[in-house]
Write a protein that binds this DNA or RNA. Structure first.
Lengths: 218, 218
DNA sequence: AACCTATTTTGAACATGTTCAAAACATGAG
DNA sequence: CTCATGTTTTGAACATGTTCAAAATAGGTT
């Protein structure tokens, strides 16, 4: 039993190393098996396929990102600045993985991928991230008309910015960082302004959208 | 010279037929070649790879979508209803392709894909679609503080809805249709309300976001 | 120890996207 | 017509993800 664990770990480790060295596409299952000192078929005994390996890497990467980002958010500033410092840290952490993160995240967009932000497989990770935005919201969202839905909206914003990051070719991803800054300020204002009675009709509609989305589809 | 054209057309036709019959993944280059009555290598003489065939299919499909959708927008109602009838038609046209459209559009999200909505290869198609939203805007956007940027925003909304559609598993894609209806009304109201002086600070920030994005990156 | 069963490992085989050198073909010049 | 040159076509070969039946191994039972 211990042997099996060691074999599995060796394969996983080999995969992670090679992913970091040569990227996702650049790494073949044969390379992984050889590096792990194991036969090709054996890799498939422990992992259903290459994608499973990528998924585990994705989970690890994402957890690291969240942890690193969270560290930078203990000061009790405004919601906008909390958001901003979180996202800046988030994207800096991603940057550490260079092109690999781009490859992983790009693959994650595909609906059939278990890494898809909307997939069942990544549900835990997703929920934890959304919860994180809940904490980040602090007291600012407590009395807001959209209440419990705000974290999901903030999560969607973070998703949109990540999508922008994937495509961003500007040096140092300057555009993404600029956009992060502006988005955070804007969302801070939006959250304030949507409290006004003037906005109640729109709030009602946004709530209707959530209700439509949340409807069960058995 | 004529022969070459006919061969190319035969390969393309075979590909389109098979795509429709068995989907993208279900179709192999060997099947395409065999159906076209041509050798495997020959298909690669005319098309750089399978993706090129998919791209041509994507272009055709998208043009059909836009044409069909456009037909349904000649009545001079409000912006919201114009938007809605356009999008309803758009998604109904997509539905005609069943799972194939889902496969194509899902693949199109990938940054490395020439079909990516942000890629250079699909620039023409993208610009034409954005222009279409410009027309759709009609007089409602002429005097708006965001002016020429509104079509792009509407295009982004349509993109977001398409993304939602890809993941939507509700019967008849009911959720997407519900969301389309609500989104159109909401954006109509948003466009009205953003004219108020109260909103000028936020408009300024949105403009700043556009400027950051449009900055050249040589 | 001998044996049995379940787990682990292997290597060959397959399907498919892609490449390429050689063969077949077409076309215009002499 | 014959040849030379450029175009088109072919089929074999390759790389890689994946599957699978058989072999090897481990762990417990008698």
């Amino acid at each position: 039993m211990r042997k099996a664990d060691r074999t599995r770990a060796a394969i996983q480790q080999a995969a992670f190393t090679l992913f970091a060295q040569r990227g996702l596409h650049g790494t073949t299952m044969r390379q992984i098996a050889k590096t792990a000192g194991v036969s090709l078929g054996n890799a498939y005994y422990y992992f259903p396929g290459k994608e499973a390996l990528v998924f585990e890497f994705y989970e690890l990467m994402h957890q690291q990102l969240l942890k690193a980002s969270l560290d930078s958010v203990n000061a009790n500033q405004t919601l906008a600045t909390r958001l901003e410092s979180f996202l800046i840290q988030y994207f800096m952490s991603i940057e550490a993985f260079h092109t690999l993160a781009r490859e992983v995240l790009a693959g994650a967009i595909h609906p059939s991928s278990p890494m898809s932000p909307f997939s069942q497989a990544s549900r835990d990770l997703r929920q934890r991230t959304i919860d994180l935005f809940h904490e980040l919201g602090g007291t600012d969202i407590k009395s807001h008309p959209l209440q419990s839905r705000l974290p999901l909206l903030l999560w969607l914003m973070h998703l949109a910015l990540t999508l922008y990051w994937i495509y961003d070719l500007s040096p140092e991803k300057a555009k993404t960082h600029q956009l992060v800054k502006l988005s955070c300020r804007l969302s801070g204002q939006l959250i304030k302004i949507t409290r006004l009675p003037l906005m109640s009709s729109m709030i009602k509609q946004i709530r209707a959208m959530f209700l439509a989305h949340e409807k069960e589809t058995l």
